[in-house]
């Protein structure tokens, strides 16, 4: 059994006091040995409640809200429940055993946490003086356009972005819906997405649809949304119906997740839908698509 270290960041005192006791209770049920460390120690995983406090020394950052959603635990319940901690650490173990050490965190996940916190904090990129501020699902920035900002965020790390107390510098030239920006950013994080989402024994189910057509999208993404919206399915099934690679299917799921859509993991590939046959053939549907210019 492997031994991993973890720390807590952004959790309140009540949580901090409970976690060591909870760890003792769940120890026999964990898939690895976990050692709780203090804030400043080098750790394998850091459970964070607030994106801005993400530990820079951790191999894996576990944003609570995001990961709990992935585990179908809904919203973060404070204090952290003992069974949730168990699932969270076992999930972290499965991530750590497959994630190469150079994969730290996803900038899209970091930004989605900032958006979820709703704090309206101002962040500026030390190298370029580009700033961004997310409030009420709108990102305000002085970047020239969305693509420039997406590229800048994608090519940066969390430490490049400094929180500023001086809101007087906030003179935005651009306002963007945060979900659309997160979607585009998620689509760029190919390596991270593959590591995180391409798990052969896991089935994914999309509980709401991305705004395809309004967000950056391609025709195969419509089929992926149809598939994962209809049933829990593997990455391989996604490849089968879309004609995309495993990496591209993983990227699609990652983009869905970071843009706030709920992606569940399930165990069985059951199709709850029993549909009557439709009076059509694939060639007719293709003709319909061609007619619409798709």
């Amino acid at each position: 059994m492997n031994t991993y270290t973890f720390s807590l960041s952004g959790l309140n005192d009540a949580n901090r006091e409970l976690v060591p006791c909870q760890l003792g209770i769940i120890k026999p049920y964990l898939t690895a040995n976990w050692v709780l460390c203090s804030d400043n120690e080098q750790v394998d995983a850091c459970i964070v409640n607030d994106a801005s406090t993400a530990a820079k020394s951790a191999v894996l950052t576990i944003p609570l809200v995001h990961e709990l959603r992935l585990l179908d635990k809904g919203e973060f319940d404070s204090p952290l429940r003992v069974l949730t901690l168990l699932e969270l650490l076992n999930y972290a173990e499965s991530c750590l055993s497959s994630v190469p050490e150079d994969i730290h965190t996803s900038m899209a996940e970091w930004l989605s946490l900032i958006a979820m916190s709703g704090s309206g904090d101002l962040y500026f990129h030390a190298g370029t003086q580009t700033f961004m501020c997310v409030l009420n699902k709108v990102l305000r920035t002085n970047a020239a356009d969305k693509h420039e900002l997406v590229d800048l965020i994608f090519n940066s790390s969390i430490t490049d972005w400094k929180k500023s107390e001086d809101v007087s510098i906030l003179k935005p030239s651009l306002e963007l819906p945060i979900t659309s920006l997160l979607w585009s950013l998620g689509l760029k994080e190919r390596t991270y997405a593959t590591q995180k989402w391409n798990k052969p024994d896991t089935l994914y189910r999309l509980l709401s649809w991305p705004q395809l057509g309004h967000w950056e999208s391609t025709a195969p993404m419509f089929r992926l949304a149809s598939l994962y919206g209809r049933k829990a399915a593997s990455i391989k099934t996604g490849v089968l119906v879309s004609g995309l690679s495993e990496e591209e299917v993983s990227v699609f799921l990652h983009a869905c997740s970071v843009s706030g859509l709920k992606v569940n993991t399930e165990k069985e590939e059951t199709d709850s839908v029993t549909q009557p046959p439709i009076n059509a053939s694939l060639s007719v549907l293709q003709a319909f698509k061609a007619k619409l210019g798709l």
Binding site: A219, S226, R230, A280, L282, L292, L294
Partner: peptide, 8 residues
């Protein structure tokens, strides 16, 4: 397009 994808 969504309806066609679902049908496909």
């Amino acid at each position: 397009h969504v309806l066609i994808s679902n049908a496909e």
